[in-house]
Design a protein around this nucleic acid. Sequence first.
RNA 1: GCCGCUUUAGCUCAGCUAGGUAGAGCAAUGCCAUGGUAAGGCAGAGGUCGUAGGUUCAAAUCCUACAUGCGGCACCA
Length: 640
Amino acid sequence: MIKIKFPDGNFKEFSQGTTIEQIAGSISSGLRKQSVAGYVNGELFDLNRPILEDAEIKIITKKDQEAFEVLNHSAAHLLAQAVKRIYPNAKFGVGPAIREGFYYDIDAGEIIKEEDLIKIEKMMKRISQEQTPITRRELPKDEALAFFKDDKYKVELISDLPEGEIISLYTQGEFTDLCRGGHIGSTKNIRFFKLLSLAGAYWRGDSNREQLQRIYGTAWFNEDDLKRHIKVLAERKERDHRKLGKELKIFELSYDAGQGLALWLPNGYTVRKVLEDYVYKLERKAGYQHISTPALGTKRLYEISGHWSHYRDNMFPVMERDGETFVLRPMSCPHHMIVYKSDLRSYRDLPIRYAEIVTQHRYEASGSLSGLERVRAMTLTDAHLFVREDQIKKEVLDAYNLILKAIKDLELEIEYVELALRDKSKDKFHDDDKLWDTAEKLLKELLAEENIEYTEMKGEAAFYGPKIDIQVRTAMGHVITMSTVQLDFLLPERFDLTYIGSDGEKHRPVVIHRGLISTWERLMSILLEQYKGAFPTWLAPIQIKLIPVSLDAHTSYAKNLNDLFIDYDLRSELDLREEKLGYKIRDAQTNKIPYQLVVGDNEVGSNLVTYRKFGKKEQTTVTVDEFINMVQKEIISKGH
RNA sequence: GCCGCUUUAGCUCAGCUAGGUAGAGCAAUGCCAUGGUAAGGCAGAGGUCGUAGGUUCAAAUCCUACAUGCGGCACCA
């Protein structure tokens, strides 16, 4: 007999070799039906894997997040089995469960086409109906290597495992796969799934190695959940910033203008200008000074900074004229270093905070370009803070809090905060262990002191120092960097920056790089998706649309209102087209204009307006003064 | 950059499987109509079917190359 401890602290005895499924069944038949897998002393166990010794267990039911992963991981195996039936020479890479489903990396021996997904999915359905049990078996490493000798990918994976490790295999029917486990008991339990897309993926994430084909899919415990998920995917497409940007006339991308070179249309530029003004004020309040430097620099400038050796491949080609070599700037740090050097600095002058609205150019790989999310010419509010060592923590924290303020005002949702550190690859990072250790320690301390939760990412740092990145998730599920605070001991050295300390000696300042809210391009893409195209009043390109009921009788009153609103700095527009009232109302609604005002006999001569707020059905009549007051307040408070 | 897919009117898309010389809705234009919260009617106009080449009596449709865009991968200082 073995002793089983339950999460509630109770013990119960079972015969040796009992399974999670049997334990669940001993509690209730309902629990048995809901159970999917379990943790046994912290290790994920299949339902039917025998438990051989005393253990603490936790049963995973269909409601648990882990259950979704177990199901989807099992669906990946089902996919592999189906592929193997259709393509007998297929070899397999890895096939994990992911956030919303699963994938498997496959070398089918021939090219799988997108249309083939249909027949693969059909084969999966058939295997599911065969109701094959999924069983586990353990082998020593050398036997596992022998077993998989025809699959070079599996051989490589097994070879990388430590010596002496027990290797587990999972078999369903004629198909056996290398796998750590956590599987659903039988193929019959994988019924509600869909293959979603076919993509390329480098073996082991290395672009120098072979490229496999990756099939993505998603699996659920019942048909409703599957249908719901497919609906969610469709809804996400509806708020894709590329679609909304087209509909709302925000930006344009054109082959002739150039790949990844966005053109801002009037509506988009209006929003951008509001954002620029907003950021300018925010930075003024936080003690930043604004400067302006050129979009072009000498190659020499980037050689001094070190960017030339680290970043050249991502720069547009150089321009040469009269013996000088110029480049389009991919970042503004070097220019800001020169601005710092324009004067002799005292310790009393620090911190100095320079901000600039910078347009920069980066030659991003063609395959990485994506709407406004990833472009080749971008404009952002960039800032560099020149601080004494004793000021680092406060300035990093202030910069971080400024970022949080902007993110809050824009109603953005942070996915997670990342602390990007270096790894051992010496060529990718500036090579000075002492500087790095100091900088990384400082940031870690700061995050701990402020109780900021973060994810550590080794190897993600800038070449000159570690950074704190704020990540957001796009409608299409990409995680991208929104904001960044970077610590830099290197550029001050490269540019020989100094200040005179209280001791009369020269000292080295530290530079903090700060990206507030990404580039205007990326920010616009995020905002469009976040707001589903319905900008809050303070950002909306058109805030008020005035619609006279009758052009003959009401135009003049409407025109007076429009002029008045504009005098109060409200972005108001008059719809004087010869169209039906209903048509104009629909137009104002599809353009997601915050305030739609229909002007007729009820308003004329009475100093009243009747408005309808976007997203609401009801109409409200107020005096003109009340209306202006209300909208102005909303704009200043940014709606919160 | 790599793999797969894609490209037809300003926009969204049909036509391509089985080759016979291009169609819809919306927008735009003109005329008529038009008074209270989501599409009034009629008419005309609009396309070297991504580009170049090939097969064919004949190519939007089949083949090849290149390019754009999309889904991923890699990259993202």
